[in-house]
Amino acid sequence: MDRRELLKMIALVTGGAVIGGEVFLSGCKNTPDKVAAGVFTAEDITWLDEVAETILPRTSTPGAKDAKVGQFMTVMVKDCYPEADQNIFREGMQQLDEASEKAYSDSFLKVTPAQRVELLTKLDKESKEYQKKKSENDNEAKKKDKNAKASPNHYFTMMKQLTLLGFFSSKEGATQALRYKAVPGEYNGCIDYKKGDKAWAT
């Protein structure tokens, strides 16, 4: 490699990312399966944006909608989720609307911001309980049969995980909500930290 060429390339370099070893997607850990047909519509993306925004809203820094998390979720579900999880996710979108209808007699997009928060808070608690039991049950089943299949994930856990991943690794999330340095240039193993200072994105 010619040295000038190398320096030119270095000038173009901008980026840094934690690679998938830490990727945080239980849905992606299952065995590949036949991919479900079905394309997300623009309405689906708007709907997912609103769910994501309720989970991570715009505050003094950008929120999930600013980071186009709805779009990201559809790409991840389509490309990375096995068919079974794709179906749980799709059905989950309906179930979430049904829960909203039941509680507030209106679909998720039509209820007030406060009602959205209340509903998703309830779903978050429910899904955490569910996942905890699921993991206990799966462990028990595995003890009896090493090849026992894991039971299904809760749809809201998927939505929340994808929202977090999509937002915090987005440009808006990484550079404005968190701190991001593409090329740190050095390592200092001990710097002072004050409460309120942002975490590193990667």
Partner: peptide, 20 residues
Amino acid sequence: AGNNPWDNPHHGATTLQQRK
């Protein structure tokens, strides 16, 4: 090597096809 995290379409996660 010059990508930011958000430049990878799946932000680092592998796809079903890659798994296969």
